[in-house]
Structures are given as C-alpha cells and as structure tokens.
Amino acid sequence: MTLPRITLRDAAVVLALLAAMAAEALWFPFHDAPLTWASWVLVVGTALPALVRRTHPGIALAASAAILLPLTNLCPVIHTGPFAAMLAGYWLARTRGTRVAVTAGVLLVPWVVFLMSRGGVDKLLTLDLPKNLAFIALPIVLGLAARYRSQSVQALVERAEEAERGREQEALRRVGEERLRIARDVHDVVSHSMVAIIVQAGVGSHLMDADPATARQTLLDIRRISAETLTDLRGILGLLREEDGEAAVEPTTTLAGLADLASTLQATGLELDLQVDVGDEPLSTTVDVTAYRIVQEALTNVLRHAPGSATRVRIVRIRDTLSVEVEDQGGQASGAVPDGTGNGLRGLRERVRAIGGQLDAGPRPEGGWLVRARLPIAASVHHAPALAQERA
C-alpha cells in the first residue's frame, strides 16, 4: 500500500486544529472539566486525521467522527473538536462527488444524534440539534460547490483549447485549398505560355534568314506572351500577400488575437491585467506567434492550477528584444502545482530556443508563478522550422 503524501500545508492545518482545540481547552473549557494527559492525547488524535484529508478523505472522516465519542467524555473540547471531521467532509465531497458525499452525510446524522443524546434526550429538542446537523451539511455543500466550479473551469479550458484547435485546422484547410488553386492557376498559365513561346521560337529560328520580317514578328509575339505571363503570375502570387483575401495564409495565433483570448479566460473568473506595447513597427511572424503561444500556455496553467488568481500579462518591446511576462498571485489550486517540467512548458522552451530567445518559468518567492521570456526582434526567416512546426 502506498503511503499518503503529506505536505507542509497538511502539517500546518493539523497544527492550526491543535491550536484551536488547545485554546478552547485552556481558556473556554466545557463545564470547567479538568485537563488530564488523556485529554491531550485525544486532542492530538482528533487533529491527526487531517493529515490525510486530501488523499484519503473517507478514512480521515471516519477516524475524526469516531474519536468524537471519547473526546466528548474525557476532554473539555466540544466546539472545535468537530473541525477535523468537517475538513474531511469537505474534501470527501470535493474529490469523490455527490453520491459518496451524500451517503457519508446520511450515515453521520444518526451518529451525531447519538452523541448529542448522551447529554440527555431533552438536548435533542433544542437548537443544538440543527446546529450540529449543519456542521455535517455545510462542509459537504461547500465541497460539492468547489468540485463543480473546478469541473466548470476545466470544461471551459477544454472548450477554449478545442475551439483554438478547430480554428487552426480550419485555417490550415483553407490554406491548403488556396495553395491547390494557385498551383493549378500557375500550371495553366506557365504551361500554356511556355508551349506558345517554344513554338514561336522554333518558327522564328527557321524563318530568320528566309523571312526576316516574319521572324521579327515572332520575336515580338514571344515578348508579348512573356509580358502577359508575368502579369498573370504577379496577379496569382499577389493573393498570398493580400490581408483581406478569402484564405488566410498567416497563422491565426498571433498577438492580435490576445483580446479574444483574454475575453474567453476572464469568463472563467480569471482576474487578468493585459498590457501590450510592441511599438509601431510590426513583429516578424515567428516572434508574433511565439509570444502568443507563451501567453496562451501560461494562462492555461493559471486556470488549471490557480483558478481565480489575479494574473498580469506584460508584453513590451525593449530595443531589439520583445519581453513577455505572465505572473499570477497564486490561489486555491485545483490540482497539482506545476514544477516547470510539463510538456507545455517544455514545448515553449523548445519554441523560444529555436528563435534564439530565452524562457524562464518557476514559482515566485511571494507566491504564485512567473513565466518570463526574452525574444529577439530580429528572429525571422532564419528560424523557419519553428514556424513550420506551428503551422503543422
């Protein structure tokens, strides 16, 4: 059996519970009950199950609820004693879902009624009964609410990623169709013109001595056909440079799309401060795409690991370098905190390295996470492999 992984946060929660119960026992004892060594053993035993509340919430809840029986007999702690069980109930609802949480709550009701009846049946007719039953319901409701929120945020992230993939695939499909159309046009124009030129050149070479006037006209026809072909090719290839053409050949994931990305993520509750100052001179496509990808990956990680965290995105041109910074303040993590070795950050490092830049990612001393990149403005066609990988 794998031992549960206990973190400093778990230990801190246990210490907080011990402090609360010790304060009640020392300063607000129930009916001035005496404190013995057994009382302190029970206090410690009541708090210890909180160590595994996240990894084994069912065991933690059962142990915390069971120890309430001797606790109410031997220790003057009745107000803070149920806190460990409440925390375990919260994590049981958050990690195991509605069915398990409701079942556990129903099973706890007779146990709470039994514990209260030991102080006299009349106590069941007071407001203490609904108050103690609320101690069961409240953690379960809060845990289920946190679970549903986490699932909602995850669904929004997945839909945003799926929509992004769909836009890229649609753009690639349209680019492919446009390339095929242009290839057909180029083939038709060039093949027809080259055949005509070859035939005219053959006729002219035979008539050069016998009929110089006809040979001269043949050369003029070759010149005209060449000029017309060049005009047609310029018109066809000019479509590749049109900004408002029917098919976009530039990647759709550039800094121009940050506003749409920010709107989507802010709908999930993310507090986003977006600051972009890249100057008037346009960026190369490679740098533009790379900067967008850095921001997109960093914000996605914030949603996964610190939903609702205040986040700042700052993109600024500093002489010949584009600085990209994404930092969040941290928050209640919905999953494991990233260690910077995931596939997303690894892919970003490879992408930044391919254009001669540098990327650093890691936790901030004051909490949260920071992703910082420095991209050379001069990165362009010399780093075409990175752009080709993006389009693929």
Score class of each variant (00 low, 15 high):
residue 77 V to S: 02
residue 77 V to Q: 02
residue 78 I to E: 03
residue 78 I to Q: 04
residue 79 H to I: 04
residue 80 T to V: 04
residue 80 T to K: 01
residue 80 T to M: 07
residue 81 G to C: 03
residue 81 G to P: 00
residue 81 G to K: 00
residue 81 G to V: 02
residue 81 G to I: 01
residue 82 P to F: 02
residue 82 P to R: 01
residue 82 P to M: 03
residue 82 P to Q: 03
residue 82 P to A: 04
residue 83 F to V: 09
residue 84 A to R: 01
residue 84 A to F: 01
residue 84 A to T: 06
residue 84 A to W: 01
residue 85 A to S: 07
residue 85 A to L: 02
residue 85 A to I: 00
residue 86 M to N: 06
residue 86 M to E: 15
residue 86 M to C: 13
residue 87 L to D: 01
residue 87 L to C: 06
residue 88 A to I: 03
residue 88 A to Q: 03
residue 88 A to N: 03
residue 88 A to V: 04
residue 88 A to T: 04
residue 89 G to Y: 05
residue 89 G to S: 14
residue 89 G to K: 05
residue 89 G to M: 09
residue 90 Y to E: 03
residue 90 Y to S: 03
residue 91 W to Y: 15
residue 93 A to L: 09
residue 93 A to E: 10
residue 93 A to C: 12
residue 93 A to D: 12
residue 93 A to G: 14
residue 94 R to W: 08
residue 94 R to Q: 14
residue 96 R to K: 15
residue 96 R to L: 14
residue 96 R to E: 15
residue 96 R to P: 03
residue 96 R to H: 15
residue 97 G to V: 11
residue 97 G to W: 08
residue 98 T to N: 07
residue 98 T to Q: 07
residue 98 T to L: 11
residue 98 T to K: 06
residue 99 R to W: 15
residue 99 R to H: 15
residue 100 V to S: 13
residue 100 V to P: 05
residue 101 A to Q: 10
residue 102 V to T: 13
residue 102 V to H: 08
residue 103 T to Y: 11
residue 103 T to R: 08
residue 104 A to K: 08
residue 105 G to K: 10
residue 105 G to F: 14
residue 105 G to R: 09
residue 105 G to N: 13
residue 105 G to Y: 14
residue 106 V to H: 12
residue 106 V to S: 09
residue 106 V to L: 15
residue 106 V to W: 11
residue 106 V to I: 15
residue 106 V to E: 08
residue 107 L to E: 08
residue 107 L to G: 13
residue 107 L to T: 11
residue 108 L to Q: 03
residue 109 V to Y: 06
residue 111 W to I: 15
residue 111 W to C: 07
residue 111 W to M: 14
residue 112 V to Y: 04
residue 112 V to I: 13
residue 112 V to W: 04
residue 112 V to G: 03
residue 112 V to K: 03
residue 113 V to C: 07
residue 113 V to A: 08
residue 114 F to A: 14
residue 116 M to W: 02
residue 116 M to D: 03
residue 116 M to T: 04
residue 116 M to V: 14
residue 117 S to K: 05
residue 117 S to Y: 06
residue 118 R to Q: 11
residue 118 R to Y: 07
residue 119 G to Q: 10
residue 119 G to I: 05
residue 120 G to V: 13
residue 120 G to H: 11
residue 120 G to R: 08
residue 120 G to M: 09
residue 120 G to S: 12
residue 121 V to T: 14
residue 121 V to M: 12
residue 122 D to G: 15
residue 122 D to Q: 07
residue 122 D to Y: 05
residue 123 K to R: 14
residue 123 K to G: 07
residue 123 K to W: 12
residue 123 K to H: 12
residue 123 K to Y: 14
residue 123 K to T: 14
residue 123 K to M: 12
residue 124 L to R: 04
residue 124 L to S: 06
residue 124 L to H: 05
residue 125 L to T: 02
residue 125 L to P: 00
residue 125 L to Y: 02
residue 125 L to I: 00
residue 126 T to K: 00
residue 126 T to C: 00
residue 126 T to E: 00
